[in-house]
Structures are given as C-alpha cells and as structure tokens.
Design a protein around this nucleic acid. Sequence first.
DNA 1: ATACCTGCAAAACGTTTGCACGTCC
DNA 2: GGACGTGCAAACGTTTTGCAGGTAT
Lengths: 139, 139
Amino acid sequence: MEKPRRGSKQKRAVLSAAVSLANHPTAQEIFFKAKEEVMSISFSTVYRNLGILVDEGDLITITGTSAGSEVHYDHITGNHCHIQCSTCGKVRDLDVPVVNFNGILPSDASGFTVDGVCVTFTGTCRDCRKKTDSKGEQL
Amino acid sequence: MEKPRRGSKQKRAVLSAAVSLANHPTAQEIFFKAKEEVMSISFSTVYRNLGILVDEGDLITITGTSAGSEVHYDHITGNHCHIQCSTCGKVRDLDVPVVNFNGILPSDASGFTVDGVCVTFTGTCRDCRKKTDSKGEQL
DNA sequence: ATACCTGCAAAACGTTTGCACGTCC
DNA sequence: GGACGTGCAAACGTTTTGCAGGTAT
C-alpha cells in the first residue's frame, strides 16, 4: 500500500538542509538553505518534501506555544524536550528526556492511541530578556 | 507601566465563551460562541481580546504538533497535559500533571528563563482510528 | 475630552493546491 | 509511456493591522 517513492535531489536537499541547520529551522529557513544546493527549488517542493519526510519519520515538527506561527522541524526524532522563546520564537533543545512519560499515559488517554509527545517549554532567552528588562516591564 | 485596561462586554464575552467551551476551542469557535452573547462582535475583537487574555494569564494557548494550524485556547492555566489527535486536531485534557518538570529545567535551560511548559501528546482518537483502520493503512 | 475599545475591510503570513512540464524507471 | 516529482502562481485559512467611529472614565 505504500506509494513508491522515487526520491529527488530536491528532497535530499531539503533533508540535508534540515539536518545541517541545527536550530530547528522553519520551512522558510530550510527553503533558503536548500536553495543553496538546488538553486531552482521552490517553496512548494520544500513544503511537499517536508511533509513527506515527516511522514517517513525522518523529521518531526515542533510547534511552540506562542510566538511565531511557523512550524519548526527537527531531524532529531527521538523524544526530547524543546524550549521556545516566547518573544523571538527561537527553539532550543533541552537535555531533559521525556522518558517519564512513556509509562504514564495509556490509562489517561481516554481512547487515544498515543504515538508521541511534544514537550515544549516556554520561556525567554537571554537576549530577549535583556530587551524586556530595558523596556522596564517583565510581564 | 501597565496599560490601563478598560474592559468591555466583548472581552467578557470572549472569556466566558472560552470558559464555557470546555473543548479547548479555537479562536473561531470562541468567536461564534461569543457572538451569541454579543451579536455584533467581530473577529478582530475576538483575536485582540484573546491576545490580551493570554497576556493577562486568563487563558493559555495550546498548539499541537501537527494537524490543524489553529491555536487552541484553554482557560485552565495550570500546568497540565494535552493530547491532540493528529488526524482531526481535537484536543483533550490529560490527567497527567506536569509536576516532574518544575524541578528539572533551570540548569538545562541554557540561559532561558522558563515560565511554562506545554506537554502535548500526539495520537489518534478513537473516531479517527476507525477511519484509518477502514482505509486499510496505519502508517 | 481623551484614551481605550470596537467593527470593518484589507493585508499579511505561512502553507497548500492545480496544473503543465520534466524526469526517472 | 507512465507515474512520480517539480515549479509556478494562485488559492486558502488564520491571524493581524489601519482606520474611523463609539464608549467609558
């Protein structure tokens, strides 16, 4: 039932862009990086391939809690946590593993089949903290 | 430095809509619900007030990992987990508390000030599972 | 009166889709 | 040759914004 997948240099470029950009890049960032490899690549192709790569398990998506509506992509697909700056939207990895959760859920999942968990902390990065402080407000 | 907030029946309608809709409503759902209370309310006003209410801590936002680009709102602002169906985008509360995390992070946060955590499980709800099964594929 | 807040309409933004062409098997 | 992949441009849905007018203090 699996569709045969042919592969293309564009797709490879998308994946390698996602991998080489360590910072949980957005689709746009991946687009520009991939463009370095395949000049002619288009947005549609990037988005299409990102979807495919996520489907195939080569990438995962990260969506933050607030700032920035863009989807971030991560080539580290194992369960780990992220923290996103609610001001600038930047995402970083956290060392905290999500192990605790693998055992917790089934009973509480009220009918859901659980296939993953996304733990995203919200916070403020040092840079944005400075800016906020100098504006004289911290809420 | 805080801006004086006047309050309005629209804002109240938005909040009470968000509260009465227990299902982690999206902005659109809140809009329609709020419209029942204040017929003349507009999208802009809903969005504006949602932003304000989140700012004020009366609501939190939930963003899933995949399906559905809309932001969901939750009036239960205490740390708790959610599970979102990756097919239909529906969000549910999980009983699992996030207590474990309050102690873990500071050292790993690499310069971030942490002010919250959003734990969203990804899964498939019973309804969507049925649909998927009947299509004969489960990946 | 002076902010703040509203409602409208238009814009912005990220993303998706339709279609014709190219490419690989 | 046929199916998959691409690129373009246009569409889409959600959210934001500019502006004129309304409302509460």
